[in-house]
Simulated scan of single mutants.
Amino acid sequence: MQYPDIQLDLRFSNNLIDIEKEGIDIAFRVRNPAIDNWVIRELKLTHNLLCVHPNYDHQSITHPEQLEEHPKVTCVGLVPWQLKNQQTSEEYSFNPNTHVRLEVDEIQMMKQAVESGVGISYIPDYIALPLIEAGKLKRILPDWKSNGQPFSILYRDRKQIPYRVRLLIDHTLQHFTNV
């Protein structure tokens, strides 16, 4: 470990928390809510994909409107499912409100539920793609995904950034330029 004396305090939430009030030095967010006196640096674009357990029979699903009758797993903050067909540019907004087997407020719980076969879900590509490659999830309607949403790092705009905070910012920016 390069900096063993630095201690991190990590908190994960899908809720839009007041990072200023909570005294947070650095935040990572999907989408870019403007915050006065904070620097927002886009790291990459993310897309949400429709995924299901590999054994789920999804062959009859040829359009997002057909998802209505299938079991679903939803996550607070990721509804409605905004989809765009990458071949035809058709856009479809799906609001999963029937046959929802599980609603969670944390993305990793949603992923676990889909891996366990609970239902279909709308999962960020940075979580879904490695699991699809490993055979733990299957993508359905592969021509459909969300529009790109910026994944950004936010930090206070100030002249005297603590050294430990500057190190994490620099490490993060270096990591995402090498991706």
Rank of each mutant, 00 (worst) to 15 (best):
H47Q: 13
Y155D: 07
K44Y: 11
Y3C: 06
I6P: 11
G117K: 12
E106P: 11
P4D: 03
M1E: 10
Q112G: 06
D157Y: 05
V165W: 02
N97C: 10
P124W: 14
N14L: 10
K159R: 13
F94P: 01
E68V: 04
L129W: 01
L78Y: 15
V118M: 13
P150L: 11
T98E: 08
Y163W: 10
E65V: 08
L67M: 09
L137F: 04
G117N: 08
D57P: 06
N85K: 00
I107P: 04
F176P: 00
E69K: 15
H53G: 02
Q66D: 09
I120H: 02
E65R: 14
I169Y: 00
L168M: 15
V39W: 02
P71W: 15
Y56L: 05
D36N: 13
L83Q: 00
S60A: 15
P162C: 04
H63V: 02
F151T: 04
E133I: 08
C75K: 05
L83H: 01
S13W: 10
A134N: 10
P142E: 06
R11I: 07
N147C: 10
V179D: 07
N15F: 13
P130F: 02
L141S: 00
R41Y: 04
R29S: 14
Y92R: 02
F12M: 07
Y3H: 15
I107G: 07
I153D: 04
F12E: 12
T177M: 06
R11P: 02
V179P: 00
E115Y: 01
P124Y: 09
V114A: 07
Q59D: 11
V76P: 05
I169Q: 01
A134Q: 14
Q160I: 12
S89L: 03
V30F: 14
Y56M: 11
E65A: 10
R101T: 05
R158E: 15
E91N: 09
Q66T: 07
Q87R: 13
H175K: 12
H70T: 08
R139F: 02
T62D: 06
W144D: 00
H70V: 11
L83W: 08
Q149V: 15
A128L: 03
H53C: 04
S146Y: 06
L8I: 08
C51D: 05
P64D: 00
S116I: 04
T74E: 03
V39F: 03
T88R: 00
Q82R: 13
R156M: 13
I17S: 13
W81P: 00
N15C: 04
D157M: 05
K44S: 11
P130L: 01
V79T: 14
E42K: 15
E106M: 12
W81C: 01
E115T: 14
D170P: 13
L131C: 10
